[in-house]
Each structure stands twice: as structure tokens, then as C-alpha cells.
């Protein structure tokens, strides 16, 4: 484990805790994309199926996998719960969440069938999850750019998530040079994902420069 990887994982962890804390303390779901959060559940469930096999990596690895599955499910449950407790806010959230995720799902499935390490169920689903993760934030970014305003904590969330992916890139350089390890699918999808976030940073700077409503990350 190198520092880039550790800080990458920590910022990923932080992004999730920020989101949960935001929903719970402010008691608001405004500006959150239900679709993006639903995609993360699917991503973690399809990627970490190896928890069911005997490919144990480390205690750290297992705990983190369980955390990501559990916390993504918890977020979806929190959002779903507002359907009963705050029907108007829930309806507004769903109405604003207009991105067509079927293209992301279909595209990721095609890419997973074309590019995988082995034509087996586990490897195809793993590949599907990395392709899907590379674009899963798009419904959230789409919502953000459409509304032109966002709660600063939503921005904190996206920023921490973008930071996580950005830190994984120097981690891969490190692993290539120090450990001789190179996972080409992880690297390619990771770069795609970071490019998607660069769009967020572009929108962010544009809004800030033109005096828009985005808060500082």
C-alpha cells in the first residue's frame, strides 16, 4: 500500500460519510441524484462478488468492501425513506433526476463483454463495475449543471469522490514502477472517470468565475 492509494481510499470513505452526514444533519435530499446513488449500489455489488469466493486479499480489503456495499445501500434506503416522510422533496428529487441511465448500463455491459480478463461471470461483472463506475457520477453532474445551484455539501461530496479517483492514478504509476503491477482495465476506466470529473471541475470554475451559486469545496 502506498500513500496515494491510502489517501485515495480515505477520500472515497470521506465522500460517503459526507453524503450520509449531510442527509442526516440537514434533513435534506435536495440536489442529490438518486440514480447515481443507485448505480453505486449496483457497482459495489457486482465488483465485490469475490467476497463470496475464496480470493481473500486482506482484512483491510474485506472491511472496506463491506463498508462500500453497506454504506451505498444505506444511502439508497435513506433516500427511499424520504418518499414517505418528505413526499414533496422526494418528488422534486426524482423529477430533477432526468439523466438516462439505461445508456450507461447498456454501454458498460457492452464494454464489459468486449474488454475483460476472462470470459467468466465474475470477471465480466468486475469489468462491468469499473466501466459503470467511470460514468456513474454523470446523473449527479447533469443535475448539478442543469440546476446551476447546489448545496455546498453536495459539492464537498463530489469533490472528495473526484479526489479519490485522481489519487488512484499516481497510485497506479507507483504500483507499475515499484511492484511491476499493471491492471489495464482499472487504469483505462480510472482515466475515463477522472476525465468525467474534470467536467465537474470545469463547471465548478465556470460557475465560480461567473458568480454562480456554487459553494467552495
Amino acid at each position: 500500500m502506498n500513500l496515494f492509494r491510502i489517501f485515495g481510499d480515505l477520500s472515497h470513505l470521506a465522500s460517503i460519510l459526507i453524503l450520509i452526514r449531510t442527509i442526516q444533519t440537514t434533513d435534506t435530499i435536495d440536489g442529490i441524484s438518486f440514480k447515481t446513488q443507485g448505480l453505486y449500489v449496483l457497482i459495489f455489488l457486482t465488483r465485490y462478488l469475490d467476497l463470496l469466493t475464496f480470493s481473500y486479499v486482506s482484512f483491510y480489503n474485506t472491511i472496506m468492501k463491506l463498508f462500500f456495499i453497506g454504506s451505498s445501500l444505506y444511502i439508497v434506503i435513506l433516500l427511499q425513506r424520504s418518499r414517505k416522510t418528505k413526499p414533496i422533496a422526494y418528488k422534486e428529487m426524482i423529477m430533477a433526476d432526468t439523466f438516462k441511465v439505461q445508456y450507461l448500463l447498456g454501454g458498460s455491459l457492452v464494454m464489459a463483454l468486449l474488454f475483460n480478463y476472462k470470459f467468466s461471470l465474475l470477471e465480466i461483472l468486475w469489468s462491468f463495475s469499473v466501466w459503470l463506475e467511470s460514468v456513474a457520477i454523470l446523473p449527479q453532474l447533469f443535475m448539478l449543471s442543469k440546476s446551476g445551484k447546489a448545496k455546498s455539501l453536495t459539492i464537498h461530496y463530489i469533490f472528495a469522490l473526484g479526489l479519490y479517483r485522481t489519487l488512484y492514478i499516481p497510485n497506479w504509476f507507483w504500483r507499475y514502477w515499484v511492484e511491476g503491477k499493471f491492471d489495464k482495465l482499472a487504469v483505462v476506466t480510472g482515466i475515463v472517470q477522472t476525465l468525467v470529473y474534470s467536467d465537474f471541475f470545469y463547471v465548478y470554475y465556470k460557475k465560480v468565475l461567473t458568480g454562480g451559486g456554487l459553494g467552495l469545496p
Binding site: N61, K118, N171, A186
Partner: peptide, 10 residues
Amino acid sequence: STSAPSHDEL
């Protein structure tokens, strides 16, 4: 290419 690398990242 060789067999699938172990997916030890998150």
C-alpha cells in the same frame, strides 16, 4: 495475455 490479475484494489 496471462490470467486475470488479482483485483486487490477497491
